[in-house]
Design a binder for these strands. Structure first.
Lengths: 225, 225
DNA sequence: AATACGTGTTTTGTCGACAAAATAGCGTTT
DNA sequence: AAACGCTATTTTGTCGACAAAACACGTATT
């Protein structure tokens, strides 16, 4: 799917570094030394600066002129703001998907859902697969919208931030079966080409996961006090 | 408002170059020569490449590895897609603005509106003021949402693209008085802290301007055939 | 003892030069 | 005449080095 090795060094560093940030290997809020990272990834400072520059515009890094860059560290408030945006954009994507997905696409989506059902029946513990499955589902719908700019916004600019936080907080939904039911209903709506309903269902689905984040933080605050 | 001169060269070039693109001084689709631009703006290729890199992630420039960069040239379809996103995000911003604007903010917004009314009464011809006024209005509401990521997305990542096309097509609304009425009603809803209504009104307002774009393209196609 | 100042060091920003890839132009071949 | 391949030139990608700004630390002063 991804064309091979005619990638620039800056692009390779970008991907590696982004992965490291999302996985939490480099802590949020930690300062970034250009020369240190350059040697770490085995490149000069030129390509590295380009990678930093792009990660900055993706919101994963904050930079101040003449001072340096540091990995972003979202506050609770900012995370909620992020979810508001995601809610708006991904419900839009879902409506467009109901309108624009090909029958092939829908078949693929249903297969994905069926696969998750299997996985879940005898193994609804291990978080990794569920998370990956959830991701696949959402990506599939986003791409189904056929809106290139929207796909870029969600997949390249927003989702990495969300994933970074998911990883950091091990924020796996406590209600996998509920999430699965949501997914099922969304697919039904898409299958019936009911964009309006699909949009509403997706909005609620994400609202729900936002609520999970909110209660997580409330509990954390309660523990602290 | 903007802190002064501790800006990096790359930032200055970024602003100048972006302005040139949005104003249409450099034609959409035209190829970008790094060395040529570097000499034009009086900097080395380093900072210039950084500026290009950022403009790429803002969607104003497209770049292929080892080939070079060119100013983006949106198709009709892509422009419509852009408006869909704007519709979704800016209506969200409007709802949040109704919830989060301070009374001061609202006062400022009303003053803005009043100012436009004056301007419009005796001078509803000259497009520039109206366009600038329209911009001020929308920016004011976007900032009123108090959602930093949303503000960044709309003002830094999306609006420049839209402005570029507005300029290119001289796409000034043919119904300034209607737009003004829309603005008025939106402000009323915000004043009453009715987020739901404000959201709907903003959505319709932008839908309307999308329709203007659509009819423009239809007419153009009709002329061509 | 605390603050202010000055020096030395690190880090960022910028530049010019080199290497590799792509483009253009020419000649050859079918 | 058209298409293929080769060479020359331009353009992009990458690097190392220099300049300026920020930071750290020790000293002097009140």
């Amino acid at each position: 799917m991804k064309s091979v090795d005619n990638l620039t060094l800056a692009d390779q560093v970008l991907m590696k570094f982004q992965e490291d940030i999302v996985r939490g290997d480099v802590a949020p809020g930690s300062k970034i030394s250009e020369s240190a990272l350059a040697t770490k990834y085995g490149v000069s400072r030129g390509p590295l600066r380009e990678a930093i520059s792009r990660l900055e515009s993706r919101g994963l890094i904050e930079r101040a002129p003449n001072v340096g860059a540091r990995v972003v560290s979202l506050s609770y408030q900012e995370l909620i703001e992020l979810y508001q945006i995601r809610e708006s954009l991904e419900s839009l994507a879902c409506r467009l998907a109901a309108e624009n997905m090909t029958d092939e696409d829908i078949k693929h989506l249903k297969a994905l859902l069926h696969e998750h059902k299997q996985d879940q029946n005898f193994k609804d513990g291990t978080a990794y697969y569920k998370q990956q499955g959830d991701l696949d589902f959402h990506y599939c719908i986003i791409y189904g919208s056929k809106n290139k700019k929207l796909i870029h916004l969600l997949c390249e600019e927003l989702y990495h931030l969300i994933l970074m936080y998911r990883h950091q907080f091990s924020n796996i939904s406590k209600h996998p079966q509920k999430a699965f039911t949501h997914h099922q209903r969304i697919v039904e709506a898409i299958e019936e080409r009911d964009g309006e309903l699909a949009e509403i269902l997706m909005r609620r689905h994400i609202q729900k996961s936002r609520t999970v984040v909110e209660t997580y933080f409330e509990n954390q605050n309660a523990q602290e006090s």
